[in-house]
Nucleic acid binder design. Structure first.
Length: 478
RNA sequence: GGGGUAGUAGGGUAGCCUGGUCCAUCCUAGAGCGUUUGGGACGCUUUGACGGCGGUUCGAAUCCGCCCUACCCCA
């Protein structure tokens, strides 16, 4: 019997689970016949819509949304040498218009600095124009050579939020980096996804940045997934693209810039962090359907039960919830499994017995059944959804906590990594020692200056050379 | 970057070496009819495929070539 509960692989086999749930829960169809390009199913796209609505709301507090072209002329794209080096192997080029070769090749943006900054140079005149804080949510193209993976490593990133800000001074830009990290923390906290922020080592920073702050989450198998980055660009790009302004003294000055990105990896993290053996578990804030009503229609009570279910739906929708009623000709049990697979946080079962008692059975996706009064149902649903969010967050935090540890030797580091953990070590920040750590453990240095409630930073002797070092995160990455 | 292995209906498989079905097969798959419905219902009827392009051949899922895609392992 229990071997017949469905064919979704166990969450413990994370890779298989992930590949399967994408199509079973109708998030992505991976059968599109081009490598690294995938199709959003309507249900997956609805999840995306709610997640990105949340992101937009946060950004719109003090950014403005814009939209720049997909195509970038070769000469603009080639202006910033360091930047080019970072991307040249990954760029798709448009070389023809119809059958006519183009005189100027056009790059499909792998990221939009070189599309946006020439325009910023035109827009920025005076210190009074600063700061400028704009973002866009677009698709970008990267010719990935490593194995592609839906939502994680794509040749077309379909949902790239990139924010590009301009400031009068380096310090102002630094403050913006901090602000955007706070914004990111708020975003992921709302999605119940625990994060660790750290400063990437120099060899791993964004091409053309002064420094890169990265946001990582720990996946079920212990690998880390980078789900956000904030870069301090200093004056690299403003010098290249002549982004200057006249200050109060009438002098021309180069601006300082930041850029900041979040992609659909946030949805990969959402799915992976919360799901279980039965399927997705969506926090109510991201769920296309927050509560599903399953009418139990038996015998001659069809009409009564359906009418009551309809009223319940309308009451809840009027109260602002996203609710569906499932009247399909299926047995109730089959519907339960169907909605559980899709991660709907709350199921409301309404049958003759409940109706007579003036109650409805509320079943949490996180596993708990309670009866609630129909008379006060909107208040009760509000409370129960909040409890579900709390349970999801607690579980994710427990997972993250239990996958972090502090170690003081290479052997202990190796052991921790092989257990599927992310480790905190002391490192002197010299490239040589960094290489030793990465090569001996077959893992990556995520970064220093860890900021997370899950990491109590320490200083100590470098795990390789013994010189004074800083707390550094080491993990296996996606 | 370097190796493997594979692609057959919505999903899962057999067949391929040794070319020749008018009937491949299983399913939580599609369509239809009926009986059902408080944790994955059942009966009957029925639809549907050999990743793509080219080649060899009287004849190709099967042999050959190129391409595309997927998964796994190792830098």
């Amino acid at each position: 019997m229990d071997d017949d509960t469905g064919t979704l692989p166990q969450k413990g086999d994370f890779s298989a689970w992930y590949n399967d749930i994408l199509w079973r829960a109708e998030i992505m169809d991976v059968r599109y016949p081009v490598k690294g390009l995938y199709v959003w199913y309507p249900y997956g796209f609805a999840i995306r819509k709610h997640v990105y609505a949340l992101l937009r709301n946060l950004l719109d507090r003090d950014h403005e949304e814009t939209l720049f072209p997909l195509l970038i002329p070769e000469q603009e794209f080639m202006k910033e040498a360091e930047h080019i080096k970072g991307f040249e192997d990954e760029v798709y080029w448009v070389t023809h218009g119809g059958t006519t070769p183009l005189e100027v090749k056009l790059a499909l943006r792998p990221t939009s600095e070189t599309a946006i900054y020439p325009m910023y140079a035109l827009w920025l005149r005076s210190h009074a124009d600063l700061p400028m804080k704009y973002y866009q949510i677009v698709n970008t193209f990267r010719y990935e050579t490593k194995q592609t993976r839906p939502l994680i490593r794509l040749r077309e990133i379909t949902s790239f939020m990139e924010s590009h800000t301009v400031h009068a001074t380096w310090d102002d830009a630094e403050a913006q980096v901090e602000y955007e990290l706070a914004l990111t923390s708020e975003f992921y906290n709302a999605l119940c996804i625990p994060i660790i922020i750290s400063k990437r080592p120099d060899w791993d920073k964004f091409p053309g940045a002064d420094y890169t702050m990265a946001v990582d989450s720990i996946m079920p198998n212990g690998k880390t997934l980078q789900i956000g980055t904030v870069h301090h660009l200093g004056e690299h790009f403003s010098k290249t693209f002549s982004i200057t302004f006249e200050d109060k003294n009438g002098e021309q000055k180069f601006a300082s810039q930041t850029c900041y990105g979040i992609s659909e990896r946030c949805i990969a993290a959402l799915i992976s962090m919360h799901g279980d053996d039965k399927g997705l578990i969506l926090p109510p804030i991201a769920a296309p359907v927050q509560a599903v009503i399953v009418p139990i229609t038996i015998g001659k009570r069809h009409a009564d039960v359906l009418a009551a279910a309809e009223k319940l739906k309308n009451d809840l929708i009027a109260a602002g919830f996203r609710v569906k009623i499932d009247t399909r000709d299926m047995r109730p049990g089959a519907k339960y499994y169907w909605w559980e697979l899709r991660g709907v946080p709350l199921r409301l079962e309404l049958g003759p017995r409940d109706l007579d008692a003036g109650k409805v059975m509320a079943v949490k996706r996180t596993g708990e059944k309670t009866q609630i009064e129909l008379a006060t149902v909107t208040a009760e649903v509000t409370r129960v959804l909040a409890e579900i969010t709390g349970a999801i967050r607690a579980r994710a935090e427990e997972h993250t906590n239990s996958h972090l540890c502090t170690v003081a030797s290479m052997d202990a580091l190796d052991a921790a990594l092989n257990e599927g953990k992310v480790a905190v070590v002391s490192w002197c920040q010299q490239k040589g020692c960094g290489d030793v750590i990465e090569e001996k453990t077959n893992a990556s240095i995520l970064g220093t200056n860890a900021r997370s409630q899950y990491v109590s930073a320490t200083e100590g002797a470098c795990i390789v050379c013994g010189k004074p070092g800083k707390a550094t995160l080491v993990g296996r990455t996606y």
